[in-house]
Amino acid sequence: MNTLDLVDAALWTQRLLGAGLFIQSAELLKTRGIYENGGALEGNGVTPWLALRLGLAGVLIVSPVAPLSWVAVIVNALLLLNSIWLTVRSRGPVCGGSDSMFFQVQLGLLIASCGFLEPTLIKLGLGWIMAQSVLSYLLAGVSKLRTSGWWNGRALQSLLMSDGPYRVFTPARKLASSRPLCAVLGGGIMLFELLLPAVLILPTEGKLVLLAAGCAFHIANALVLGLNRFVWAWVATYPAILAMSR
């Protein structure tokens, strides 16, 4: 089975990233009242800048030009600047970790899109995305490993029972009634996060199994906790993983 070549990986990265940023921008436009007069983050108007973000994200999805070209560089650079503006304007990230990963993918993609000038840059950019993605799983897993609550089920139980900040999918709250079940599920999450870096050395079939598990993990988080932006932010890193870990 063949893995992705570098240019295809850049193309799929930009499409998945574009889809994530498009959804994020549409969501922010719908709830832009928080940025308007009297809103918690009141200040200068955000609508034109969010509309620009939406449009640029749409360009990434449609990909009318080659992912390694001056036009791609300009689109990626404008989106990166827009992300910095959004963070400053929001007095912090708009959605925690997903913003961080979106930004790392944007940064890597900007570097990769300069690959038509110097071929090493595409490897550098995609390599950056792969490294950040693998590190994110590994560090999250190691961090949970050190927390007793993730071993005995208390952490997952608290999360599922919590009265904020997450809107929990009501049927999933039933899982919280069993501490042993939460311990097993928590152990599964830790195992998955710690195992994911194995994508770097596994054969293609093994990589695909782990990345499919990754997709399922993020979709489950979107369903249970509402973290839909995380799906796109992390899945956008998978083409780079497949292409760079050949």
Binding site: I23, Q24, A26, E27, L28, K30, T31, I34, A40, S90, G92, P93, V94, C95, G96, S162, D163, G164, P165, Y166, R167, V168, F169, T170, P171, R173, I219, A222, L223, G226, N228, R229, V231
Partner: peptide, 23 residues
């Protein structure tokens, strides 16, 4: 803090607004 909305897997403006407010 409760929902049964399946559509939020794709589009979740109100849930993400609450997360922004909580942050």
């Amino acid at each position: 803090h409760n929902t049964r909305d399946l559509g939020r897997v794709l589009f979740n403006p109100s849930g993400n607004l609450v997360l922004l407010e909580a942050s």
